[in-house]
């Protein structure tokens, strides 16, 4: 297991290098630099000194080299817009993002898994079709629109829940979490349904029925545990994606999350900040992926023995279930 984790961390390094280089170069192609944004705060001399310090008088590769050198020392750099460490800024926003991502995925799980199971057990029926259309409806609603509609109904008209911010704790979490969760529903419901359909006609469920296991237990215990691998894969992917920042929803609800921090930084050409945020979200996503891989072992004993023998588990995980892209 330890060896596996180390391998995963090593695999992360080229991705971080690639992503940061990509972002660095692309943002460099954009007109303007961070200096234009902060020019008013400095005298021309200071600005010239800063330009030299930040490497804006040299090529983008020089600046990238500087950045990587700092990164190698565990330093994500300093944002000149906020005049603060990128790490600190990111960590300030992370709890809100984690909370929202967790709550959204939870909403999605609570809605999708029962719906997917229902659709699979009533395969081909009206219920099946209705569930799938309901799930697709969730996918088809633009997040910002759903968010605004929820605000109109529950905040402005009924006055039940706050429309923005982070201050009301759990109550302010509800609407944004439903907004994102509804969007995630389609994929998770579909995955649950197709995964359950694969399992539902399997011989071992017939064995269970022949033993006299009640149908409910057949579905909830015997079938669901077998159908879990693709479901967990999708949950992991969705968790990762929401952690990267749900830019639009954060915008609608003025949620103080990482997504808005990143977008604002892009708008302000704060290359260091953008790169830092994206690197952090890459790291978060692979942490989640690692967690997912470890969960596989608890769900499927065949994978556990693969871990023990140190074989290629991604390949196996895919063989056992396969995720959706």
């Amino acid at each position: 297991m330890g060896k596996y984790i180390v391998k995963r961390v090593i695999m992360l390094i080229p991705v971080i290098i690639g992503v940061s280089l990509l972002i660095f170069i692309m943002l460099d192609l954009a007109p303007g630099t961070v200096l234009d944004q902060i020019a008013n705060d400095y005298t021309p001399e200071q600005l010239a000194a800063l330009e030299h310090e930040l490497g804006y008088d040299r090529s983008v590769f020089y600046r990238y080299g500087m950045y990587m050198w700092d990164l190698l020392h565990g330093d994500l750099g300093t944002s000149y817009i906020y005049k603060a460490e990128v790490w600190d800024l990111y960590m300030q926003r992370l709890p809100a993002t984690l909370l929202l991502a967790g709550a959204s995925v939870l909403v999605s799980i609570v809605l999708s898994i029962p719906l997917g199971i229902l659709a699979a057990t009533k395969h081909g029926s009206l219920t099946d079709n209705a569930s799938m259309v309901a799930a697709l409806l969730g996918l088809s609603m633009p997040n910002f629109w759903l968010g605004l509609m929820l605000i109109i109904v529950f905040s402005l008209n009924l006055g039940w829940l706050p429309s923005s911010g982070f201050k009301d704790g759990f109550r302010s979490l509800i609407l944004p979490a439903i907004t994102i969760g509804t969007g995630l529903m389609a994929t998770l419901t579909r995955t649950t349904r197709s995964s359950m359909l694969d399992v539902i006609r399997s011989d071992y469920l017939r064995t269970a029925r022949a033993k006299g296991v009640p149908e409910k237990t057949v579905i909830r215990k015997h079938a669901l545990k077998n159908a879990m691998i693709p479901i967990i894969t999708v949950i992991g992917t969705q968790m990762g994606r929401t952690l990267g920042g749900s830019v639009v929803t954060e915008n609608v609800f003025s949620w103080p999350g990482v997504g808005r921090l990143t977008i604002d930084a892009v708008k302000q050409r704060d290359t260091i900040m953008v790169t830092g945020c994206i690197i952090m979200s890459v790291i978060m996503i692979s942490l989640i992926q690692l967690l997912v891989d470890i969960t596989y072992a608890f769900v499927d004993p065949r994978l556990k023995s693969q871990y023990a023998s140190g074989g290629g588990k991604r390949k196996l995980a895919r063989a056992a279930g396969g995720g959706q892209t």
Binding site: I23, L27, A30, G245, V247, V266, V274, I285
Partner: peptide, 15 residues
């Protein structure tokens, strides 16, 4: 694809 799609789009638009 390690960069979230919407962020990538935002970066491209700003370029």
């Amino acid at each position: 694809s390690a960069v979230p799609a919407i962020l990538m789009a935002v970066v491209v638009v700003s370029v």
